[in-house]
């Protein structure tokens, strides 16, 4: 499930002394009014990760935040993070520019079952800032397209202005071997796309529920309703994977902050098979 043993060793070595490794920023791009993407150049040796994993990003003097990795898992010469400016650290990161240095610890956490799902239909459902953590999986699936059945991407955001990776979405939509549906919560009359919650897209898309692996990321409310809808469509709980978010300080299970039921999101998650957290998923204040 998790990274290879060799990678794991590196992680242990890199993270245990809590020392971030400095990466230089090669590009900064504004995606939306509050979201931006930074490309980082790994030091020699490259950067290896599995789709779904995250890094702890450290900005000198401001702090460290967990951010999922959203680039291509097969491209080791570039590390990409899409960040939404919502807190002190991420807002400060918004001011970063090409050439600046950013500390990186990671990768941490479990991954999407991208490789393990060969032979199945792939249903990827993202809400809001949930698309970046799923993008590495999309890259992996598309790079090995022949190994999978139908591939469907459903993506919901607040307004058309909040849609991430527009160009790529257009490219994916143009493919004959991928179904892409985007919906927004609200839009003006000149919007030609869908309006409605992302769960309404499920019944509009084509996949075989008996052999579909669903991967979802979004606000918890969205994921709760999505899981219900997927089960209604006949997808087995075992084939539903969700990525959880909590306040992580260390990434290594030492700080205790990201406990979710009996698990630590940083090392037992962020990606869970739904049955693993089913019991706490509907519990409040867990």
């Amino acid at each position: 499930m998790i990274a290879t043993l060799e990678q794991k060793k590196n992680i242990t070595a890199a993270s245990a002394d809590r020392k971030p490794v400095l990466f230089r920023i090669s590009r900064v791009q504004k995606d939306t009014h509050d979201t931006f993407t930074i490309d980082l150049e790994p030091p020699k040796g490259g950067f290896y990760f599995e789709p779904g994993q995250f890094n702890m990003l450290y900005l000198h003097g401001v702090g460290e935040v967990p951010i999922s990795i959203c680039g291509d898992p097969s491209a080791h010469d570039k590390l990409i993070h899409t960040i939404r400016a919502v807190g002190t650290v991420t807002k400060a990161m918004q001011k970063l520019k090409k050439g600046d240095l950013l500390g990186v610890r990671g990768p941490f956490g479990t991954n999407w079952p991208a490789e393990e799902s060969a032979g199945s239909d792939i249903l990827i459902i993202a809400g809001g800032i949930g698309l970046p953590p799923l993008r590495p999986s999309i890259y992996h699936v598309l790079a090995n397209r022949e190994k999978y059945g139908k591939v469907v991407l459903l993506y919901g955001t607040r307004t058309p202005k909040d849609i991430l990776y527009r160009k790529e979405l257009e490219q994916w939509r143009a493919r004959f071997d991928m179904e892409v549906h985007v919906t927004v919560d609200r839009a003006a009359g000149d919007w030609h796309g869908n309006v409605g919650v992302v769960t309404t897209l499920i019944s509009r898309s084509h996949f075989d529920p008996s052999s579909t692996v669903a991967m979802l990321v979004g606000p918890e409310v969205m994921m709760r309703f999505t899981v219900l809808e997927l089960q209604k469509r006949g997808i087995e709980p075992d084939n539903i994977y969700i990525s959880m978010e909590r306040n992580m300080k260390c990434g290594t299970g030492f700080c205790g902050h990201c406990q979710y039921g009996p698990t630590f999101i940083c090392k037992d998650g962020p990606v869970y098979p739904y049955p693993a957290i089913k019991d706490v998923f509907v519990k409040r204040e867990i």
């Binding site: 002394d17 809590r18 020392k19 971030p20 400095l22 003097g61 050439g99 600046d100 240095l101 500390g103």
Partner: peptide, 16 residues
């Protein structure tokens, strides 16, 4: 103290 970060113009050094 987990680590110390020193900034000098455009460069940052992190030590433990």
């Amino acid at each position: 103290e987990l680590c110390h970060s020193h900034r000098d113009r455009n460069s940052v050094t992190i030590t433990t």
